[in-house]
Every structure is written in structure tokens, then in C-alpha cells.
Design a protein around this nucleic acid. Structure first.
Lengths: 220, 220
DNA sequence: TGTACATCAGTGAACGCGCGTTCACTGATGTAC
DNA sequence: TGTACATCAGTGAACGCGCGTTCACTGATGTAC
């Protein structure tokens, strides 16, 4: 006989319930405060309301929990970007704008995940391991870039890979400087979404994908 | 009578010598490995060859040393950017390219400083304190942006502040994604300098500051 | 449906360790006369 | 130039603490018959 039958379920049945998820959530909360190297497994357990030994039923060690925060983060990140891009519907440009907003929303709503995902100097032993969801996330960006390129005559299309790196860098820069609570968050007179969107629009004008407001030098 | 007279100076005279500097350097080395929240004051002292109590002659506490790493980092950062910009000589565009390269060089050569300077979620008690050198660094970027704008007729100039934020975000994004040893460092087929320069060129074309290769839609 | 057993997810106590910080101290350096 | 004193930058031992991790354990859950 299974738990959760006939709706009598205790809120989280079965021993503790989904402790693994709860621990990850606690870790994210702590990482948000203290950074990925500053958070403590013991305190995460305390926050989840279990003994300090309990996490070891779900994670080999501290490092493994951190790796899972990154992996699960990329999973949700990719899902979210994919949803926003929505196969370029209704138009590549509007879909692309949604993509940018989704990127910033994720960085703002899950700063701990985002930090662990992208922070350099982490994963000392994890050399070379690749996270599939991370590849998927970048592939979405690349698909979007390609779709935008297709609006140009073939001879004028820039290298899609390079273009993707540009767009990624701009998004990442805006996210870490302005969307999260960092140094420059207060400095900017605008919302991070506006900064990203205007930067990308200018960039796309530079490629000739969008008609420029300013560039056409001395026509007419 | 002063030490260092007549050139007989012991390599580092006067008790230990410039322990403060040595400690900062040790801290940077450790932060590079373990991150700003992961480094240990005790180990920094060990690395400098002094007892764990010695640092307290130069810094109030761990936090103060970290703050000094950031402050001194911004100092060198601003100096370096200023030198590269060189008042826009010989031309704003080439000076601007030098500026970008200097930005990336700093992030690559002093990854620990750069991280502490820009990492979000740090300085919990340091709310509102502002680092003068950080302002100077941003001012240089803004001066450069303004100089580039001056090449446009006045009516077509974009808001300089917004433009600076764009350029800052692109530089920061490229620096953290591709110039330091992070996730994407291997992924990119190009050097970070090339990625930044091409992105900026396209951006400037979008503003009409540079003649576009692609944009002029159907002239002729 | 009932019973016996295996498994699973937790407990709680304990370990050794390195940390940040303090303290009284000491010996070298700088200064007044 | 020499001496007495103040200051300065270090030592080394000690503290209390929280950490990561291990261990034998226990009681709830799932399963075979």
C-alpha cells in the first residue's frame, strides 16, 4: 500500500519526506548569504531541521551537494530559456527579447544557483566533467542567434558561434552587474532588463539585423 | 639615521619589512584558489611566514583585510585603465581598444582582486561605503564613451551614461566568462580580447560611430 | 490479512581539525636630550 | 656620540567554536510468502 493514497497524506510523508530537495533549497539560501565556499553543510542540515549526519544519506560530501546545486540549476535554467525562446514564436525578435528577460529573471531569482553555475575557480576535482543541461542552455542561445541571422542575406551573416558568445557575454555582464544585488545595482538609473534590451538592440543594429535609428550615415 | 641608507639595506628591512603588502599578496593567492569567503587569515599568515597573530598589527580583522584587497585592487585597476585610455591619444577608437585590452588583462592577471571587487553578496556591513578608486575607474569608461560619442552629430548621440553601462557589462561579461579560468574559457574558439573587440565594434556600428560592414541596408 | 525480514532514512554522540581572535610578552627600531 | 625611554611589529600560547565526517544505532517503511 502506498502513501499519499486517498488524500490523507501527511504534508511530507515517508521519514522526513523529500529531504534532498529541502537541503538543496537550504544550501541555496545559505550560499546566497555567504557564497559557495562560505556555506556550511552543518548549517544547511540545521536549516532543514535534521541532524548534521542526515545529508550524508543523499550526498557523498559537501562538494557533491554543491555540484548538485549547479546541475539542478542548469536544468531549470535551460528549461526556462527554452520556454522563453518558444521556438522563435511569434517572431524571432520578440522571442529573443523574452529569452533575455528569462536570463535576467533566473539570475535574480536564483542568485545562489547562478553563482555556483558560473563562478570560476570552483570544481577543483571536477575537471572536464560537463553538465548536459549547460550545453542545452547554450544551444538555445545559439539557435536563437541563428534564427536572427537568417533574416540577413546569406553573404552578410556573421559567424553564429561568435555572435552567441557576444550575446552570452552581454547577458552575463548585465546579470551579474545590475540584476543581482552587487556593486552597481544601485548605480544604474535603469532596470537591468532595459539595459540588456537596449544593448542588444544596438548590437543587432550593428549587424544590420535591425534597421538602425542612428547609423545610416548621411542618407537623404 | 634611516634604514636603506648607503645601499646596504637588507632585502626587507625593519622587523619583517612590508608585511602588509606581503599579506595582501598571500591573501590574493589564496582567494584565487578558494574564493573570498573560503580563504583563511591564518593560512595567509603562514604563507607570509609570520605567526597567526601578526596580521592584526595591520588589519582590524579578516573583513578589513578583504576590504583592503578590494580597495587596493580598484586603485590599480583605475590606474591601469587610465594609462590605457591615455586621454584618447592617438585616436579615441584606438585608445578605446587599449582600454578594453587593459580591462581584460587586469581581470586575468589579478583574478582574486577582480573577484573581491565585483562579487555580489560581499561586504554585509560595508553598506553604502563607496570606494573612490571604483568611481574613478567608471569615470574613465564614461569619459571614453563620451569621446566616442563626440564623433557623432549632436542630435544622434546616445545617452553617455547608458552607453557606459553597456560597455561595462560587455567587458565584465567577457572578462568573467572567457578571460578568467571559468566554465567557458575552453569553450570559446577565440581569445577573449578578440571576442570583446568584435563585440564592441559591432556595438559601435549599431550606434553609427563606426561605418558598418553590414548595416547600410540597400544603399548604392 | 498477517507475519518475518530487509532496507532505508534518519539520530545523536563523538572525533580531530583549523579557524578567528586575545593576551601578555619581547626585542628591534626610532627619538629626546 | 651615548644613554634612557617610548613605540612599534612581531611571537607563541591559548581560548572557544563550528566545521566535515564517521559510527553504531533505531525505528519506520516496503516486500516476500
Amino acid at each position: 500500500m502506498n502513501r499519499s493514497e486517498r488524500g490523507w497524506r501527511r504534508p511530507q510523508s515517508y521519514h522526513h519526506g523529500n529531504l534532498k530537495e529541502v537541503l538543496l533549497e537550504a544550501a541555496r539560501k545559505l550560499i546566497e548569504q555567504y557564497g559557495p565556499t562560505g556555506f556550511s553543510l552543518t548549517e544547511a542540515a540545521r536549516l532543514a531541521g535534521v541532524s548534521p549526519a542526515a545529508p550524508y544519506r543523499h550526498f557523498r560530501d559537501r562538494e557533491a551537494l554543491l555540484a548538485e546545486v549547479a546541475r539542478a540549476g542548469f536544468e531549470r535554467f535551460a528549461a526556462r530559456l527554452d520556454m522563453a525562446w518558444n521556438n522563435g514564436v511569434p517572431t524571432p525578435l520578440t522571442a529573443f527579447e523574452n529569452l533575455g528577460r528569462a536570463y535576467l529573471a533566473f539570475a535574480r531569482e536564483e542568485p545562489a544557483s547562478y553563482t555556483v553555475m558560473f563562478e570560476t575557480g570552483l570544481r577543483p576535482g571536477t575537471e572536464g566533467e560537463t553538465i548536459p543541461a549547460a550545453e542545452r542552455a547554450f544551444d538555445i542561445l545559439q539557435k536563437a542567434a541563428a534564427a536572427l541571422c537568417r533574416q540577413l542575406p546569406e553573404s552578410e551573416r556573421p559567424p553564429v558561434k561568435l555572435m552567441s558568445l557576444h550575446l552570452w557575454a552581454i547577458s552575463h555582464g548585465v546579470a551579474t552587474l545590475f540584476a543581482q544585488g552587487g556593486l552597481a545595482a544601485g548605480k544604474a538609473p535603469l532596470k537591468s532588463e532595459e539595459i540588456l534590451e537596449s544593448a542588444v538592440l544596438i548590437y543587432l543594429q550593428g549587424l544590420g539585423i535591425l534597421p538602425g535609428g542612428n547609423e545610416t550615415p548621411k542618407s537623404i
